[in-house]
């Protein structure tokens, strides 16, 4: 566990860079997190559709969505998900949304 500065606030993150406490996350941390993890900024409305969906999923079901679920239910299809988050849509959107890495193999 490490403490890092995001949007001027000290926040605890794990070895992979995921926020330890999702309730510490604020919207203005998203761009900084995206920059840190190689997602093109400024974040577009389409990025935000995914980020908001991930947070909603996490708080409702205890885990963020997998790529398959995102592709089916978030309103952004698989192809576009990989354009928005080329290095892994579920993992990176979870990282930017301040929630833990989604569980699930498919």
């Amino acid at each position: 566990m490490t403490i890092t500065q995001l949007a001027g606030k000290p926040v605890e993150v794990n070895d992979e860079g995921f926020l330890v406490d999702p309730t510490e996350w604020t919207e203005d941390m998203a761009t900084e997190l995206a920059d840190l993890h190689g997602v093109d900024t400024p974040l577009t409305d389409r990025h935000w559709v995914v980020i908001n969906y991930m947070r909603k999923e996490y708080f409702e079901n205890g885990t963020g969505a997998t790529v398959r679920k995102l592709g089916k239910a978030s309103g952004v299809n698989t192809k576009e998900l990989f354009q928005l988050f080329p290095k892994g849509p579920a993992k990176l959107s979870a990282m930017i949304a301040g929630i833990p890495k989604p569980k699930g193999c498919i």
């Binding site: 790529v67 892994g88 849509p89 990176l92 193999c105 498919i106």
Partner: peptide, 11 residues
């Protein structure tokens, strides 16, 4: 297919 898909999801 699971291995391939999982790998893409990890970038």
């Amino acid at each position: 297919l699971i291995m391939g898909n999982g790998a893409r999801n990890e970038g």
